[in-house]
């Protein structure tokens, strides 16, 4: 945890109060008034399932032995401004975690193991790599929405995410490193850790596509697909030879006021 956890707590508190207050008011006078000028409020909660992956998968990755999406949540409060009976604009605030755990076999994978202050063991790795990542973001989506019919609503747009806390680390095991390049000295390694948490990018942009199904008057089922367009690592990060993008699906329920 490299950032202030207090920032975190305050944020959760804010979201919780927002949700509970809104829920209690339930069709209060303000909501009715809002709906008259075309404003609609909702809160959403769901799971994030997906991966942070290079696209397309580089040839260095020979197989993915194991994949675990872990338990990642997304909580969102947003507002829709209906421009007419079918088209609208959505924005809001989402607190979410994206992460996964993978185990892959790689061949000739450029990487750097070891801490910064002590110098690095950098080279080309052939063997297994286990990666775990978890990033917490504060996200602002901006979407256009279209009502297909009374029950189905589609959304398309983009988002901005601010990284609040991030971890990207793992181990390289059962393989060997060629120091520097493929002709460098060969070193067999049983297990070595790496941690790129400090190299994660703070500001992210991405595309978002979603669908919402009105199951009951106030309760919707939704799915949002998000695709990050910038590398999760900073531009000057060179330890992994390819860019990685967060690609996630959020599935959950929305409460409509």
């Amino acid at each position: 945890m490299r950032r202030n956890t207090a920032r975190y707590g305050a944020l959760l508190l804010f979201l919780a109060s927002f949700i509970s207050v809104k829920a209690q008011e339930d069709r209060s006078a303000e909501v009715v008034r809002s709906s008259l000028i075309g404003l609609e409020y909702r809160v959403k909660a769901g799971f994030n399932v997906g991966g942070t992956a290079p696209l397309p998968l580089p040839a260095e990755i020979r197989s993915i032995e194991h994949y675990d999406p872990r338990l990642m949540f997304a909580i969102e409060g947003d507002v829709t401004k209906w421009l007419n009976s079918r088209l609208g604009v959505i924005t809001g605030l989402r607190f979410e975690s994206k992460g996964m755990k993978t185990d892959a076999k790689v061949k000739g994978y450029l990487m750097e193991m070891v801490s910064k202050q002590e110098g690095a063991l950098k080279g080309v790795w052939t063997g297994s790599v286990q990666t775990q990542s978890r990033s917490d973001y504060l996200t602002v989506p901006l979407l256009a929405t279209w009502k297909y019919n009374k029950r189905l609503q589609l959304e398309l747009g983009g988002y901005y995410s601010l990284l609040i806390d991030g971890n990207f680390s793992g181990t390289a095991y059962d393989g060997y490193l060629r120091k520097g390049d493929p002709t460098g000295e060969k070193v067999l390694v049983s297990e070595a850790a790496y941690d790129f948490s400090d190299d994660l990018r703070n500001n992210h942009f991405g595309l978002q596509m979603g669908a919402e199904w009105r199951a009951f008057t106030h309760l919707n089922i939704y799915g949002d697909f998000t695709w990050g367009v910038n590398n999760i690592f900073k531009d000057d990060f060179k330890s992994i030879s390819f860019a990685m993008y967060p690609i996630y699906l959020t599935l959950g329920f929305a409460y409509l006021f």
Partner: peptide, 28 residues
């Protein structure tokens, strides 16, 4: 179940795009 189905399909999708193995780069 939805999660599991999604996981499996994602894994399948990722695996299906595993590229052909590169020629050896080592010269020992």
């Amino acid at each position: 179940e939805v999660r599991i189905i999604f996981m499996v399909s994602l894994l399948a999708a990722l695996s299906s795009c595993i590229k052909e193995e590169l020629l050896n780069a080592e010269a020992d």
